[in-house]
Design a protein around this nucleic acid. Sequence first.
RNA 1: UGCCGCAUAGCUCAGUCGGUAGAGCAGCUGACUGUUAAUCAGCGGGUCGUAGGUUCGAGUCCUACUGCGGCAGCCA
Length: 466
Amino acid sequence: MDYRRTYVRDLFSMPPGSSTSAYGWVKTRRDSKGVSFVQLSDGSCFRDLQVVIEAGSIPEEQLKLLTTGACVRFDGEVVASPAAGQAVELKATGVEVFGPADPTHYPLQKKGASFEFLREIAHLRARGNTFGAVFRVRSQASFAIHKFFIDRGFHAIHTPIITASDCEGAGAMFAVTTLLETPPHEEPEAVLKARPYLQDFFEKPAYLTVSGQLEAETLALGMTNVYTFGPTFRAENSNSVRHLAEFWMIEPEMAFCDLDGNMNLAEEFLKEVIGFLLERCAEDLEFFNQRIEPELLTTLHHVVESPFERMTYSEAVKLLEASGESFEFPVSWGSDLQSEHERWLTEKKVGRPVILTDYPKEIKAFYMRLNDDDRTVRAMDVLAPRIGEIIGGSQREERLEVLERRIDELGLPKEAYWWYLDLRRFGSAPHAGFGLGFERLLMYVTGMKNIRDVIPYHRAPGQAEF
RNA sequence: UGCCGCAUAGCUCAGUCGGUAGAGCAGCUGACUGUUAAUCAGCGGGUCGUAGGUUCGAGUCCUACUGCGGCAGCCA
């Protein structure tokens, strides 16, 4: 056995008469008087292979083992199918059962199960249509993202996953410590209190990263265009269909780039990645369009073909105030937009992705470049129909005095930012970048409604099985 | 974390006014020469999430707890 062999995907284009083997897992078996049919899947593509087993061609006791979930190899001949539903099929001459699956205990069945149930058996769900398709799209999307940046001369960089500075300011963090190596019955809280952090592994508090942005900026101011694509952790107690405690984030950072350039990159990025997937994952996306989100292909093509709407936060607030809609939360300049506001803008008002810019400085991070009005910053959020905010970014504050003033205003520990401020002290440059949640992109592209269903094993409050 | 909802067969669900539980699928047995979520006949399958309470009687009403889901917030 070798990975270089025929996959189910390949069988569909083999000429009738070819002798071959097919490895995979049984989805269903249908029996008739003199013939049985097995749907075989190996995850190499969306389609199943129909295997035809004529009576007597394999031993009766082997046939009985071919139940849903069983892992097998069929040997046989590719033949033109006489029935509708598939062009070719495999006429079996032999079978080897690698792993039977007792049908009275195997939790999957040929009929669909709820996503909630499948989450509980996440170790088996990749065998079904939906999750096979999700994870194939995830793989291709990952490739498309790297290709997009590498094609444009960006350098892939790896920012640290463990960070010893509490200054990223993007939400609650997971502590990283070796102080808990003592057995739990020795009361870890007491241990933590009794022993100063000086005795911990890093000799200071350490955390899992919530963003690689600040580190990415340091590489951009030396290598010009860089990007990260790695795991990110947020310890927020958030229980929603679009948040995870562990997720993958893409963060490009560009020197000699302003907010307009940043918006151009974000728009190009979404268009190219989605366009790539429309081509490369056509069968999988067709499935999502039929079974998950009826408007999927229409909206994806629309995103690829039409320019994104761009407006300032202030313009958006005016539109919302004039909308006549009765929102649960009132709209007023200076407060952050609620989900319902973002949804109205992108779904009802514009009907395609919208980029909002120039938010009030009070509701955005300290590192965003201050506008001349001294009230707004060069921030941008890309909002997409169905899922809301998909990208958040900004032009960064490159002026040392302004950045120091912002840090002081917000009462942040300036000493901790010494290296970040050094960038502005020595050879500072206008620069910009954004962050994109990989799983949010996958939700958008597949139409899946819950972020927990676009990652193999989700991490959320109280959820760390597998 | 707040609000709302749900929890009944392996899965998806129904269960009326409170009267000791039902369907489809899956499983098992059989029928059928090519099926496509095959079809047809028969069979088995339940401590109704847990613990209390009200009642002659609770799947059904009440309380608490647990689990899950949705919405909101936090954001990517």
